[in-house]
Amino acid sequence: MNEFLLIFGMALVTFIIRYPVLAFLSKMNLPEKYLSGLKFVPPTVLTAIIIPQLLFDKDKLDISFQNPQLIAGVLAALIAWKSKNLLLTIVLGMGIYLGLRWILAI
């Protein structure tokens, strides 16, 4: 495999996604309606990344107590909500997840 070509191509398409829209839209006057819709981008993208990772195990829906991602994810959400502390959420959430995996593997 030609690694140079691969990485050059991946870098190029990624930059083409990130940069031109930033450059061109920043030169335009955008309608108020458009701007008010954009505040939904961060929460919806994050949700769309998170939810399938919690509910699916290799393309199979798994909503049960045997699913450590789901249990740890729900608990992490509760910790985030109560503590409002991101670092604490990450550390506790990961601890719970690894603990559950260990218990379920016994």
């Binding site: 961060p42 929460p43 994050l46 949700t47 990344i49 998170i50 990772q53 919690l54 450590p68 991602q69 740890a72 994810g73 992490a76 959400a77 985030a80 909500w81 409002k84 991101l86 959420t89 990450i90 959430g93 990961m94 997840y97 690894l98 995996r101």
Partner: peptide
């Protein structure tokens, strides 16, 4: 090892305060 789950927990921690 399951360590990749750290990314998901991070995103959960970012998402919740936005709601």
């Amino acid at each position: 090892w399951g360590l990749d789950f750290a990314m998901i927990v991070t995103f959960i921690g970012m998402l919740i305060p936005m709601i």
